[in-house]
């Protein structure tokens, strides 16, 4: 209920309500993007862009709908796109240079093993076990059949188990 009030407040111009909404949802949005991309800078970019999209579309947002799934849909889809396109893009800096993003740690933990999965499987696993969406909700978020969600989950978990040795 508080979330609806925050959205309403933000729609009426309240920065404080927007900040509550942001603080509530940032950690999970960033974490989801980081787990899918394995890149802190990209995760920050993607999560930030998702919130900017939210701000741009705030007036049109239906307060009866939960905010989180809508935001996570943008985050995860962007993160998958970013991961797919990563190798194809050569960037040229404008005068300044960003330090290279550190490689994801490979410490053998479950989270590190997520990083070994293909992007599509990674996204489904993150949505299911980190953000705790049901397979039906994931299917809706990613616009894919529920059967595909289940198969990606199964394959993802199998592969993680195999990686864990």
């Amino acid at each position: 209920m508080a979330e609806r009030a925050w959205i309403k407040g933000a729609q009426q111009g309240s920065v404080a309500d927007l900040e509550r909404l942001f603080r509530e949802h940032w950690p999970r949005a960033y974490r989801a993007a980081h787990l899918v991309t394995g890149d802190a800078a990209a995760a920050e970019d993607i999560a930030q862009e998702a919130f900017l999209a939210a701000v741009r579309n705030l007036d049109r947002f239906d307060r009866r709908r939960p905010f989180g799934p809508w935001l996570h849909r943008i985050v995860v889809n962007r993160a998958i796109d970013w991961t797919r396109a990563r190798k194809l893009r050569a960037e040229v800096e404008l005068g300044d240079y960003l330090p290279a993003a550190p490689a994801p740690e490979r410490d053998g933990s479950a989270l590190a093993r997520i990083a070994e999965l293909p992007a599509e499987h990674r996204a489904v696993v993150v949505l299911r076990y980190v953000l705790e969406y049901t397979p039906g909700e994931i299917a809706e978020l990613l616009d894919i059949p529920r059967g595909t969600v289940n198969s990606r989950l199964r394959r993802g978990l199998d592969r993680m188990k195999a990686d864990a040795g």
Binding site: G13, E19, E44, L52
Partner: peptide, 22 residues
């Protein structure tokens, strides 16, 4: 992550203030 959150909030807040009718 906290730094990232602060940076992102600054950008989002600025965008919000610029889009809102004063």
């Amino acid at each position: 992550m906290r730094d990232a959150e602060q940076r992102a909030w600054a950008v989002v807040k600025q965008a919000f203030e610029e889009r809102s009718p004063a």
